[in-house]
Structures are given as structure tokens and as C-alpha cells.
């Protein structure tokens, strides 16, 4: 595993030119046609897949792209322990609400490269596909965002293979990863934002007569971060769609 401290920087979009977050992205933009497919670069692990397996992967990802963005939010919540007893409709409601909150957070956030935590380092490392990680944020000893370059590269190659470039412009995955971690920082730093999110989700942990104790919804913060990243980077679909497609690609590579 190679690790490289890339730069000490703000958690901004990096090389990717971030569009206006106020231009809200569509929840279920139809998948682009095969005309957008680009050749997968030489050296990409995706080239090791057999043509049949590659077609299988394309078909599986097309099925994913046909789903509504909220479905990915529901999946994330359902995969978060503690929601075992929850109704799917309720998870859907929470997923929608959290995504809207994340998009609004991006709209309200000051423009520019202002970092959530000024001393945040960005470290590029590898080994992400083995550990199924795209990015990671650690607040100690110094706030650090780790970007797993192998996963990011695989994501870019996958976008080309699937013809999803109109949904995820070049470099947008890296920018989204940085924006995602910035959203986590914003939520950590702003108790008011956390309170607003909790109120909007409207979950009750305890009710005794008129007394109501609002409850935390595990996983909602993650959905906010994804929606924030999608909005800041002007993505036409949720980053979770590409995350699910990447998971399929990693599984296909492991099987082959």
C-alpha cells in the first residue's frame, strides 16, 4: 500500500470545476445512452474482465441506474444496524428528507474553498478496493482526509465503461469525496445544523404524555454528506449510485 501526503489544503473540489450548487441535481436522471461510452484506459483492472463479464457488469449497473436515488438512501439506512425494525416507507421518508437537507446545506454553505477544518490534510493512498473504501476522514492527530486513489481510478474507468460521463464529469468523484468529508466536518462543527436535521427527520426516541424526546437517525449524516457532495459537485445522480456500481465492479474483479 502506497501512501502519499498530497497537500495540506482546504476540503474543496480540487481539480474539478465545481458548478453552482444551487442548480439542484435530478433524483432519477435516466441513464445515458451507450453513445457516451469511452474506451477503458490501458492498465485499468476493468480490462482484465472477460467481454461477457463486462457486459454482465454493464447490465447490472444499468439496472442500478434505473432505480430512483432515494432507493440508494433506503439501502444505506437499511444497511445501518439499528434500523432492522423500521418500515421501508419510513426509511424512504428519512432518506428523502436527509438528501434534501444535504442539498440545502450545500446551497447555504459559503462559496469558495473555505475548509471546514483549516488544518485538514489530504492524503492519497492505495488499498481502497481491498478494504472497499473510497475515502476516509480522521479527526486525530490532525484532521486528515484519506483518498484511496485505486478506488477513485476504478470509479473513473467504470464511468467510462458505463457511459455515465454526463452524470459524473471527469474528476468529479475525487471532488465528491472531498466534499463528502467536508459535509461531515460541517455537521460536526454546527450543533444547530444537527438539531435542524434531527427536527426535520422527526423521529421520536421517547414520548411520555406531552414530553417528546427527539431521536437520532443513524446513517442520516452519511446521506446528508452524499447529497451535499452531489450538489456541490453538480452531479446529476447521487454519488451512492456510483458507489453501488463500484461495489459491483470490485465484486466482478474478485470473481474473475
Amino acid at each position: 500500500m502506497n501512501t502519499r501526503v498530497h497537500r495540506a489544503t482546504a476540503l474543496s473540489g480540487g481539480a474539478h470545476q465545481a458548478p453552482d450548487p444551487r442548480a439542484r441535481h435530478s433524483r432519477s436522471t435516466p441513464p445515458p445512452s451507450s453513445a457516451h461510452r469511452a474506451p477503458v484506459p490501458a492498465g485499468s483492472p476493468l480490462r482484465t474482465l472477460s467481454p461477457a463479464r463486462r457486459e454482465e457488469l454493464r447490465a447490472a449497473c444499468a439496472r442500478l441506474a434505473a432505480l430512483d436515488d432515494t432507493e440508494f438512501g433506503v439501502r444505506l439506512l437499511a444497511n445501518t444496524p439499528g434500523h432492522d425494525t423500521r418500515d421501508q416507507a419510513l426509511l424512504g421518508e428519512w432518506a428523502r428528507e436527509a438528501a434534501e437537507f444535504g442539498t440545502e446545506l450545500a446551497t447555504d454553505a459559503p462559496a469558495g474553498d473555505r475548509p471546514a477544518a483549516p488544518r485538514t490534510r489530504v492524503v492519497e493512498t492505495t488499498g481502497g478496493t481491498d478494504r472497499l473504501l473510497l475515502a476516509r476522514y480522521r479527526s486525530r492527530p490532525v484532521p486528515t482526509v484519506e483518498l484511496f486513489t485505486d478506488t477513485l481510478a476504478l470509479g473513473e474507468h467504470l464511468v467510462d465503461l458505463l457511459g455515465w460521463r454526463p452524470l459524473y464529469p471527469a474528476g468529479s468523484l475525487r471532488a465528491a469525496a472531498l466534499a463528502h468529508e467536508r459535509a461531515h466536518c460541517l455537521l460536526h462543527e454546527d450543533a444547530g445544523a444537527r438539531r435542524t436535521l434531527r427536527d426535520r427527520l422527526g423521529h421520536t426516541a421517547l414520548r411520555i404524555g406531552p414530553l417528546r424526546v427527539p431521536g437520532h437517525v443513524a446513517g442520516a449524516g452519511e446521506l446528508v454528506a452524499h447529497a451535499y457532495a452531489g450538489a456541490v459537485c453538480g452531479l446529476r445522480r447521487t454519488p451512492l449510485l456510483l458507489t453501488a456500481a463500484l461495489m459491483g465492479a470490485v465484486q466482478a474483479l474478485r470473481e474473475d
Binding site: N79, L134, R136, R138, R140, E222
Partner: peptide
């Protein structure tokens, strides 16, 4: 206090149930 918080963007998060 020593280790702070950690968040990861995991590929498994949006996997099908």
C-alpha cells in the same frame, strides 16, 4: 479524545440488501 472521530465512504454502504 485521543483518536477523535473517523468517517469512511464505504463501497458496501449502498450495496443491495
Amino acid at each position: 479524545r485521543r483518536k477523535g472521530v473517523e468517517h469512511a465512504w464505504s463501497l458496501a454502504s449502498a450495496a443491495e440488501r
